[in-house]
Design a protein around this nucleic acid. Structure first.
Ligand SMILES: [Mn+2]
Ligand SMILES: [Mn+2]
Ligand SMILES: [Zn+2]
Ligand SMILES: [Zn+2]
Lengths: 145, 145
DNA sequence: TGTCCTTCTGCGAAAATTCGCAATAACTAA
DNA sequence: TTAGTTATTGCGAATTTTCGCAGAAGGACA
């Protein structure tokens, strides 16, 4: 999952924010570590490269990059927060509570639901990265009842 | 939001769990404090009645009662966890990120979405209490762009 | 390149949440 | 009622996440 550094930097500066080595390191880390990266994993990774980079900064930057829609956050099955690079097109997940397997869904699965909320409640849902929990094919059979 | 104490107690004992004063106090607290109660609010409330009841117990019991489907948990706009009594029929929420207003949705709004996931992915979504975030009527107008 | 303004970071402390373990106490069955 | 089994609690420490503030540093402009 690479990211367009120069484009992101321009976007930040245009909004009055600054491009710092900490922000670049943390963004790189999320991209290298793959999908659904925890703050602690990010900290471990960047700490090797920049030992003075503090935990507080990791949390702050992850929040910040999420606000800027550069990262997307998601709750995992255990309730912890995780992050990943926000692609141009959102995607979502089905997470099995039994076997922890993870299915990826296209954004289109929520299209009709969003339209319904808009029509019925005049409410615009903002869903950039949602996980739905439940039970997958295999686990439904074995679970019984 | 009252709860059927004797029925809940029977259900717990039947499953091999125990009915303790701590569990009863915490459940009472959630019911009295209303919708979307935080662990800290529960602790403050029960601590007056039972000063030795520890914070760890509050967290453990809230998790436990959620597993038993007596409580339902939900993430609030600020990312914090909250709990409320799980009624016989689930409900959901639309939470405005701008003004924090909160709309309640009937479970039926997710019916067709659940059926679609079941049909297309053979995955049974378990949604007992979901919050969707976005922007309400009023805030959409003022926000512009 | 150097100055200035403001954003950002690092630090340490605080707050929130989880964990391990010994002691307590709820239920079961006599 | 009593004793035994074991789920549950309280405690203190560990871990995770947030906060406030003083100092560092990004970037706009000259
Ligand atoms: Mn994802
Ligand atoms: Mn609710
Ligand atoms: Zn499964
Ligand atoms: Zn609003």
């Amino acid at each position: 999952m690479p990211h367009n550094t120069t484009e992101i930097n321009r976007q930040l500066r245009k909004s009055g924010y600054r491009v710092t080595p900490q922000r670049q390191l943390i963004l790189d880390a999320v991209c290298q570590l793959g999908d659904h990266v925890t703050p602690e994993a990010v900290y471990d990774h960047v700490h090797r490269i920049a030992p003075t980079l503090s935990r507080a900064t990791v949390y702050r930057v992850l929040h910040f990059l999420t606000e800027q829609r550069i990262l997307a956050m998601v709750y995992m099955a255990d309730g912890r927060l995780a992050y990943e690079l926000a692609g141009p097109e959102p995607h979502h997940h089905l997470v099995c509570r039994s076997c922890d397997s993870l299915l990826e869904l296209p954004h289109s699965v929520l299209r009709s639901f969003r339209r319904a909320m808009d029509t019925q409640y005049d409410f615009e849902i903002d869903v950039s990265h949602v996980s739905f929990f439940g039970h997958c094919t295999d686990c439904r059979d074995s679970a019984g009842a």
